[in-house]
């Protein structure tokens, strides 16, 4: 049985819940179904505002779904399970804590903030290249460095599943490429399963085992595209036929380029 199963998930925001301007219920997510194995990295790709983020929050148990079912690691998700890592678009660090205390925040909440946790935090910071920044304050770091701290914070409690909501969307292109490689390296070392929301086609293809493509609102899963590139990946793979093929398939699913079959006929 698959590690994670999302089945016919639908989310309708009733009038008034998304602010007073909406005059009728908003269907954020119409029908999303897909499944993934333990350790897989799944990219959720789609136009902005298409409900990918909503799906991520449903999987996290932060908001309730209208219908459908979400099962992660054999457990039905009805509320927060407490063993997910979450990375947001903004680093969202706590300015009142030092870097290492930011990383340790989940352990404090889970009441597991001990020596071993500290050692693991140091390890993670070293892994992302911030070994010498333990006692720095977040505002002293660049955006990319802050996001790396946020990544450590998401991994400190050894979560089953890492949920990432356009985590590198606000970074410049070069930093973003670096972060992509860093994420893949971390995934390899921790074996965590990852759900990664993005609206960058090339980022989705570069990172993922499978790309789940969403249509415009109301969002449905329009296609599930396996990426046949082997891991570990490197930037040179961006220029291989397999990469281009996957990019093309995702673009077709998004309706940006016409289907090959349509052209042929």
């Amino acid at each position: 049985m698959a590690f994670g199963t999302i089945k016919n998930v639908r989310k309708v925001f009733p009038v008034g819940e998304l602010g007073s301007r909406a005059t009728e219920p908003v269907v954020a997510l119409d029908d999303a179904s897909f499944s993934f194995e333990r350790g897989e990295l799944i990219a959720l790709l789609g136009p902005s505002g298409c409900g990918k983020t909503t799906l991520l929050r449903i999987v996290a148990g932060l908001i309730a779904k209208t219908s459908g079912s979400v099962t992660i690691g054999g457990r039905e998700v009805t509320g927060p399970l407490g063993d997910y890592g979450f990375v947001f678009q903004a680093p969202s660090l706590m300015p009142w804590r030092s870097v290492i205390d930011n990383v340790l925040f989940p352990m404090e909440i889970l009441r597991r903030s001990d020596k071993a946790a500290r050692a693991r935090a140091s390890e993670l910071l070293a892994l992302v290249g911030l070994a010498t920044f333990h006692h720095a304050r977040p505002h002293q770091l660049s955006g990319g460095m802050q996001q790396r701290v946020a990544l450590c914070r998401a991994l400190i409690h050894q979560p089953n599943l890492l949920l990432m909501d356009e985590p590198f969307g606000a970074l410049d292109e070069l930093t973003r490429l670096e972060m992509n490689d860093l994420l893949l390296r971390i995934r390899q070392e921790t074996g965590a399963s990852v759900l990664f929301v993005t609206h960058s086609i090339s980022e989705a293809v570069y990172l993922a085992d499978q790309v789940i493509v969403f249509s415009r609102r109301p969002a449905r899963v329009s296609q599930q595209i396996p990426v046949s590139l082997p891991y570990p990946r490197n930037q040179a793979m961006r220029f291989t036929p397999a990469f281009t093929q996957a990019e093309r398939a995702a673009s077709e699913a998004l309706g940006i380029v016409p289907h090959v079959e349509a052209l042929a006929s």
């Binding site: 407490g82 969202s92 706590m94 925040f105 909440i109």
Partner: peptide
């Protein structure tokens, strides 16, 4: 209080007291 920090705390099943003293109050300081 930044929404993300509250979501982070909720996703870890933080108690109300934890949220108040570890997130909301420092953020409001």
């Amino acid at each position: 209080t930044p929404k993300e920090l509250l979501e982070l705390a909720h996703s870890l099943k933080a108690t109300r007291t934890q949220i108040l003293f570890k997130v909301q109050f420092p953020a409001a300081l």
